[in-house]
Nucleic acid binder design. Structure first.
Length: 426
RNA sequence: GGUGAGGUGGGUGAGUGGCUGAAACCAUCAGUUUGCUAAACUGACGUACUGGGAAACUGGUACCGGGGGUUCGAAUCCCCCUCUCACCGCCA
């Protein structure tokens, strides 16, 4: 959530930003509405504070008068206060209503976009930030997509998952399950080496947490909701891990804060249909290793670069061909200022699969989180938050299975063999 | 699920209606002094909103888990919720 003061001070940036996000003039009107509402809020608050100040003052006098025994005078003062209270009550109600309205408006406003975010509406408008560095090899003529490999080698059973739960809940079996576990182990070891603190967080979060990282109210319908206890199944480890820093006051020396965790992720994916949802391409439950950083605001873009480098190096180690996209305004998430997507090329499906998204949220999350620090001058400032996936494992699995298939079987990438303890699925 | 005890500033913790935005201690920062690593002393030290001021600064309001109530006045009294801890029960 943006601060009202920020919007007031940086109106032009905000408007430009919303245009990059393809808001029309009508929608952009919300900015003026915010400012008008805030004007009312300020005016009301000032007025109310004046009344309350008077009440406090008179109350003190009454105390003194009672001590001196001047009861009559005290009682008349009481009446005076009572009449002030009537009008102050009205103002309080008015102020609260105005504040609520302001918050409601602010919640509809997405993050400011970074100056380098390209204009555009569709995925196809995303800018290629880094082309695929490896030449794509050719698969044998009998190569098939992973959903066929799944059946051939009996490593993944989508139908069984559909029976137990519903479509989009994969069941991994045998070497498929082991490969998944190997990936988790490998990735956690790798990010630990890069200095990330390993975390195993809860898989359900409360409303406050979902709100603080921006899933609520923006993505209400996309999360599984356990209504009996009003808890949400996490759509990403970003939610519980970033929330570790909700309501915190940090010191400058605490930075950089680097955390990583593996969790299953649950997404309703309401409204997704078509070829994209086949096999592991889009599922309701998948495993992911997520990295999160809470950074000094002056350093957050360096941190973003560092995260991109790390994610790229991991894909190199897994021998997967990938490219990096800079998301355009239309594809950029509500809470993000700048996002880079990593896409791995599936040789069998002949398409790019998104396996990682690395973003800088600047202060958008930390404002809601109230994650602040004291800078060297002793001033309180909001920290920046960033995160990236390394990786969404469903699609990485798909790509590994598909790209490494030969007539002998599926070869396991070298780095994973110590984890799988086998080198081929056949 | 039941019973009991609690949630106070960065931390520990005092505080049962006005003198408390909040003692004391610790931590942190600045300074003084003795001076190798260290100690002693002095001072500063919450957050948010808001008025005035170019600024330094200064006035006001709110906040002692959250919400509501009683009262001229509430951290302090009452109600509801929530979280933590302990014990019991139930269960993986």
């Amino acid at each position: 959530m943006l601060k009202t003061q920020y919007i007031r001070d940086n109106q032009e940036d905000v408007l430009r930003s919303l245009k990059i996000r393809n808001w029309n003039d009508d929608q952009i009107g919300v900015i003026q509405e915010v400012i008008d509402t805030d004007d009312i809020r300020k005016k009301t608050q000032t007025e109310l504070d004046g009344l309350l100040s008077k009440v406090n003052e008179i109350s003190k006098e009454i105390g003194e008068l009672y001590k001196k025994g001047e009861r009559d005078l005290a009682d008349s003062k009481k009446n005076e206060v009572s009449s002030i209270k009537e009008s102050s009550q009205k103002l309080t109600d008015q102020l609260n209503a105005t504040k609520d309205k302001l918050t409601e408006l602010l919640l509809t406003i997405p993050n400011i976009v970074h100056p380098t975010v390209p204009a555009g509406k569709l995925e196809s408008d995303n800018e290629v930030h880094q082309e695929c560095a490896t030449t794509l090899k050719e698969l044998d003529s009998g190569a098939v997509p992973h959903w066929d490999l799944a059946v051939k080698y009996d490593i993944l059973d989508m139908a069984a998952g559909a029976k137990i739960t519903g479509s989009g809940f994969p069941v991994f079996k045998g070497k498929g399950a082991k490969l998944q576990r190997a990936l988790i182990g490998f990735l956690l070891d790798q990010v630990s080496e890069h200095g990330y603190l390993e975390i195993i967080p809860p898989l359900l979060v409360n409303e406050d947490s979902a709100r603080a990282t921006g899933q609520l109210p923006d993505k209400e319908g996309q999360m599984y909701h356990a209504t009996a206890d009003n808890l949400y199944l996490i759509p990403t480890a970003e939610v519980p891990i970033t929330n570790l820093y909700r309501d915190t006051m940090l010191k400058e020396s605490d930075f950089p804060i680097k955390m990583a965790g593996h969790t299953p992720c649950f997404r309703r994916e309401a409204g997704s249909y078509g070829a994209d949802v086949k096999g592991l391409n889009r599922v309701h439950q998948f495993d992911k290793v997520e990295v999160v950083q809470v950074a000094h605001p002056d350093k957050s873009y360096e941190v973003l670069d560092e995260m991109i480098k790390m994610v790229g190096s991991l894909l190199d180690k897994l021998e997967l061909p990938y490219r990096i996209l800079r998301l355009c305004g239309g594809d950029l998430g509500f809470t993000s200022a700048l996002t880079f997507d990593f896409e791995v090329y599936s040789l069998a499906q002949k398409k790019w699969l998104e396996v990682s998204s690395v973003s800088n949220f600047e202060t958008f999350q930390t404002n809601r989180l109230k994650c602040r620090f004291k800078d060297s001058e002793g001033k309180t400032r909001l920290a920046h938050s960033l995160n990236g996936s390394a990786f969404g494992l469903a699609r990485v699995m798909a790509a590994i299975l598909e790209n490494n298939q030969t007539s002998d079987g599926i070869h396991i990438p070298k780095v994973l063999i110590p984890y799988t303890k086998f080198d081929i699925i056949n």
